[in-house]
Design a protein around this nucleic acid. Structure first.
Length: 602
DNA sequence: AAAGAATGCGCC
DNA sequence: AGGGCGCATTCTTT
């Protein structure tokens, strides 16, 4: 494996009199490629601020290296890769020093991880620039990171590519010396590949038909209103609502006003939340009919209001460019390792607008959804054979219900099985799922023990780690002191609730975080296989990943590739399972659909 | 007037 | 009734 670090070239001259002497060496904002082979760090060629694509194109030949054996190293892939993509260059493998540093720094705080790491250079994680933003030329990271004083600054006070290369060596050594080097290596590699995927998705975009979206808005809300006015159908609904509740001029957008009006009309709720209104209507016994009629328009209003404000005309204006929605993903942006997305609410695209997502003519969307990832992850992590057996088929919850019936427990049907398992993973303490916990514990002792051990750690103020080694954050410095303060009844109850919340968090962290790792590996494998191709596509496929939501991917490509894509995503899911858990008997089945409209999937 | 908190809903 | 988010709007504080 050949590592090539792409970073800022050291400035030609430094010091307070910079510019007064004749320049020698690369211009400010230039790139340098530094080669890392084991511990050897070899300075390489440089290129001007806008010349990175040329440099990357020329390097493999110049070094006599097979491009496939190169791992390209960036301070931040999110900011370094887009210029290459715009120039039509796709990289095979990479390493993101900032993302790796964040994980290693966290891991080093957890004794059990055995990670000895102190960074030589501070490399902050950078979020991607929103799509279409005019990029600044040159290495975007030049001023963003700085060498730690102990390591001795470079000539211009910044470490440059050579400093980044030393940091890479430090990171790799930290992995090698850790307790689970293979897992940690897999995590950092997968996180970095994730950054490649995210940058490519940002560039590519999800195909979005503005005309269909607008048609749907018109159908449900009426024509686009003037600025500051409600759409017609929403306005009519608001008036009907006001009349029904007997409060002329009621503004249903104001939770306070709405709650007052509801209360006056005899709706006994403590907030205007939709689930509470539904519950109130359902709890009416013989009166449920009347209650439903009272509450229904409110729920309808809320739904349409949400559609209007979150995914209406403004959203289209803001986020859909040239027939594409370009979500800017933040890799590992959630503490658990899940991706976040900034702009346009990419992770919350509601079902109501998905019909606007259409493949280009002659192309298809492949939508692949992994079924019940988290309980399967739990089965694999805990090596709970019974739960793994439940996961051998497509519908884990149904199998759990069958196992529950055979054992004579209270988990007799699919709905209750699902509630019970989700409740166990989230740490529910009341309601249906809490009642079912003892049954679950009897059925799956290893799985439940893993969750409760994680919860106990959190309750003590400790940290936990995912399967591959991402660590939960340490508690706030004053956390323990506050938890120990039980002087008054109020303080004691606060203490108890803080401990419980910390426990719920760590309990969920191990499962949600490991599921995120599985998803990273899944996408990395999909990408690798798309590039590698198959018998029918020996030079790779044109299909690309265009969208991702935690356990679901969308790909877009020529219709004739769709069968191959279906095989690729399915095989990649199995491979991801093996990468994480070896031969553990846990399967990761998918629902795969090749469709013209995103709404046709599921 | 601006900033921040709270409310509520969308997704997994 | 319980984990993780982003975002728009309303409400409160500065």
């Amino acid at each position: 494996m050949q590592h090539i670090v792409l970073g800022p070239a050291p400035a030609a001259s430094a010091g307070p009199s910079a510019g007064s002497s004749a320049p020698s060496g690369p211009a400010p904002g230039s790139w340098e490629a530094v080669l890392v082979d084991g511990d050897r760090i070899v300075p390489g060629p440089t290129a001007g601020p806008d010349q990175l694509p040329g440099l990357v194109r020329a390097l493999p030949d110049r070094l006599g290296t097979d491009p496939a054996s190169i791992r390209w190293v960036f301070a931040s892939v999110a900011t370094g890769y887009p210029p290459l993509l715009r120039a039509g260059i796709e990289l095979g493998r990479c390493w993101d020093l900032g993302l790796a540093q964040r994980i290693l720094t966290g891991a080093a705080t957890l004794e059990a991880a055995g990670v000895r790491y102190s960074p030589t250079v501070v490399v902050p994680v950078r979020d991607p620039e929103p799509y279409g933003e005019a990029p600044r030329p040159g290495p975007p990271d030049q001023e963003a990171f700085f060498e730690l004083p102990a390591a001795g600054a470079g000539r211009d006070g910044h470490p440059g590519a050579a400093g980044l290369a030393r940091e890479l060596v430090t990171q790799l050594a930290a992995v090698t010396g850790s307790r689970h080097p293979q897992r940690l290596m897999l995590l950092l590699a997968a996180e970095s590949q994730g950054a490649l995927v995210a940058a490519e998705m940002l560039q590519e975009g999800l195909p979005w038909r503005r005309d269909l979206h607008e048609e749907m808005l018109r159908r449900r809300l009426g024509p686009r209103p003037r600025e500051g006015e409600r759409p017609r159908l929403l306005q009519e609904l608001a008036q009907r609502l006001a009349a029904g509740l007997g409060v002329p001029g009621l503004n249903p957008d104001s939770p306070q006003d709405l709650l007052r009006a509801l209360t006056a009309a005899g709706v006994r709720v403590s907030s205007t939340r939709a689930w509470e209104l539904r519950e109130w209507a359902r709890g009416g016994g013989a009166d449920s009919q009347r209650r439903t009629e009272l509450v229904e328009p409110v729920l309808e209003y809320k739904h349409l209001y949400r559609l209007w404000t979150a995914n209406g005309w403004h959203w289209l204006d803001e986020w859909v460019r040239d027939g594409r929605f370009h979500p800017a993903y933040s890799v590992g942006g959630v503490v658990t390792g899940r991706w976040a997305a900034h702009g346009g609410g990419a992770m919350q695209v509601p079902a109501a607008v998905r019909d606007a997502v259409r493949s280009d003519p002659g192309w298809l969307l492949t939508v692949a959804d992994a079924s019940q990832v988290e309980p399967r992850i739990l089965a694999a992590m805990s090596q709970d054979r019974t739960l793994a057996a439940a996961g051998s088929g497509h519908d884990l919850y149904l199998a759990v219900a069958e196992q529950g019936r055979r054992a004579g427990s209270g988990i007799g049907d699919r709905t209750r099985a699902k509630i019970a398992l989700l409740g166990a993973m989230y740490g529910a303490t009341t309601g249906d799922s809490a009642v079912l916990m003892p049954h679950l514990r009897r059925l799956y002792p290893e799985a439940i023990e893993l969750l409760e051990r994680a919860a106990r750690r959190g309750e003590e103020g400790g940290q936990v780690a995912t399967w591959l080694g991402r660590t939960s954050p340490a508690v706030a410095p004053d956390w323990l002191a506050r938890v120990r303060d039980v002087g008054t009844a109020e303080a004691e109850s606060r203490s108890r609730s803080m401990r419980a919340a910390a426990g719920r968090f760590t309990r969920n962290f191990v499962v949600q975080g490991t599921a995120a790792e599985w998803a990273l590996c899944w996408m990395g494998e999909i990408r690798r296989r798309l590039r590698e191709g198959d018998r029918d596509h020996p030079r790779g496929l044109r299909t690309r990943l265009v969208f991702f939501v935690h356990d679901e991917v969308v790909l877009h490509g020529p219709a004739e590739e769709a069968p191959a894509v279906g095989r690729i995503v399915t095989e990649a899911a199995a491979t991801a399972g093996r990468l994480l858990f070896g031969a553990a008997p846990v399967e990761f089945p998918l629902t795969v659909a090749a469709v013209e409209s995103y709404a046709e999937a599921d």
